[in-house]
Amino acid sequence: MKGFGHFPLILLSLVLFALLPFLPFGVWQAFLLDVGFFVLLFTALALSWDLVARTGQLSLAHGAFFGLGAYSAGLLAPQLGTLPALLLGALTAGAGALVLGSVTLRLHGLYFAIASLAFSEVLRTLALKLPFTGGPIGLPVPPPFAGAWPLATYYLSFGVLLLATALSLWAERSPFRLAQAATRQSEAVARVLGVRVVQVKLWSLLLGSLVAGLAGGVYGMKTLFLSPYDAFSLGRAVEALVIPIFGGLYTTLGPLVGGVVLVSLEQALRLWIKEGYLVVYGAILILVILFLPRGLVGILGRRRG
């Protein structure tokens, strides 16, 4: 199927990110690694959102999957160690997705968005009220591998992006893409053509939530502290959908390009303009959406699938 034409570009950017810690940036090194970490993590989150959006489910629950992964991994890491905690964090997010998915099977587009928003709010309230989450005070999280390796969070983040990219490329190049596109464009017609719409939607939501949960787990290990308002932030769910819209929906390259450009732009603007950087950020977003309705990759002249 389509999407393979961009493969060299995708591969090149991945190699660049893999080598970033070893490039000679002098005093900028630490700052760039920080930016790189967030670029990788939020790009992965954006890819995981796009994977779900390809079925017509506009998720506002990605902040919640992220938070579920972050809290579960943060709570389990002291007992189980870094990797098992991350894995269980992802699975917790996946379990949440199955709950959300099975009650929203008949919902589409904006209706799904509203239900997923409610889901998100419920989970944040739980994180505030449950006895073992630290409530509004928050939850300290140990660094990965007991802090033995300074580059650990960066490469964990890179790993999450690799996984997100691999899943997205698979979905884009396999018949699954047709099932997702058919489901998005008309559920009734897709069903009459034999597409198991319910399964396609549930699988997409599950895969997307696993990646989002994993990203959340890594995030906690970087910030070393979680609070319900940060981990379950609606702003993060919005960022997860702004990046694919900015870069190009329903593709692998779109969220990748969008994430690299937008997250670095945000970090750079924050550095240069400090107060009010969001005004410039917002203006750029609006301009791109107005003049590039198919996102940055629309410039490449490829159609959507």
Partner: peptide, 29 residues
């Protein structure tokens, strides 16, 4: 048991071939 619709509802963002592939690949598991 196949069906064609009155108001034609192609998947507009897919090519003709891909539209047919949806039916061909998923119509018979």
């Amino acid at each position: 048991l196949g069906r064609a619709f009155q108001i034609v509802q192609p998947f507009p963002e897919l090519t003709v071939r891909e539209n047919l592939l949806v039916g061909a690949l998923f119509g018979k598991p």
